[in-house]
Amino acid sequence: MNPKLLRKTEIAAFVQSLAPSHTIVAPQPDEGQCSYGVLSNGAQPALDGGRPRKSAKEALYPQKERMFAFEAGAVEPCSVEPEPPLILFGVRACDLKGIEALDTVLLHGAFVDAFYKARREAAAIVGLACEKMCPTCFCNSFGIDPYAPPACDVNLVPAGDAFVAQPLTEKGEALVASLPDADAAHLATARKAGEAFHAAENPKVAVDAFVEAVAEVFESPAWEGIVDGCINCGGCTYVCPTCHCFDIVDETIGHRGQRVRAWDTCMAARFTLHTSGHNPRVTPAQRLRQRILHKFQYMKKNQSILGCTGCGRCVAVCPVNWDIRDAIGRLTEELSTASKA
């Protein structure tokens, strides 16, 4: 498939041309950073705004989803046919990997999530290669390469005054069919951008050694040791590209109600609170253990994929500088010493 050329000056017009039949979700300026959001008519996506605040999962798997509505004895299932199909435009590689991880759970697992499936299968995804890593990024530790990204339909690679749009699937080819072919000069610039990115990568975190070290661990004094200042807020899990745990509640006002599925966070006490009032997971260490083991042990075992993509958002948003990179290092050391002893 031939690489195409998308000039920066023509992005708004190009996106606009896709819009009549699609809803476009793209990074937009947000309080000094950027966030993925539905692009309003004629708006320019913020493709140079760095890593968006929250991951792209929200577009496919919203924080709150209505499953059905009811009114005093009558039930109306919600339609799973989404509105116009989505185009996720300008998705970073870490988020692409995150969508892959969500797919394993919500699409390819024992239970298929009908809402996610309808949205996911209709969506086209346009990746966006980063020019450089943010200080908190460590996607390279997971073998993620924005210039050879995980599954997406088109990948945009920066090339000076333009992006080289490389279609990777038939859906992607159709999407960028209207664009001109990329010329040799721009292809060379794009290649250079890739080289520059790889030359300035952040140091890697020893993920493989860690996955091996925690493979069979549950009870260990090591968990207490990494709690540090964690205050058990849910910031890290809500910005995470792979966290997918949810809560289901019936919201009612008077005789009318709806059942909704909403994101939940393993960092909160309520997450494991039983009806009886018993809570099996009470300490910050137990909750952190859950978060780490879910990402690096359970998902590895059950979905054959890691639940971390190294996007570094949890590191960036943490109010008390709880750094998963640091925790991985310390845990690997402690757990391997403990297993030798």
Partner: peptide, 25 residues
């Protein structure tokens, strides 16, 4: 824009209710 992660509450020394009104069921 609020994602209700409750970081504001958890970061606050004065928010020490054993069950926050936002978490009661």
């Amino acid at each position: 824009r609020c994602i209700r992660c409750f970081a504001c509450r958890n970061a606050c020394p004065l928010c020490y209710c054993t069950t926050c009104f936002a978490e009661q069921t």
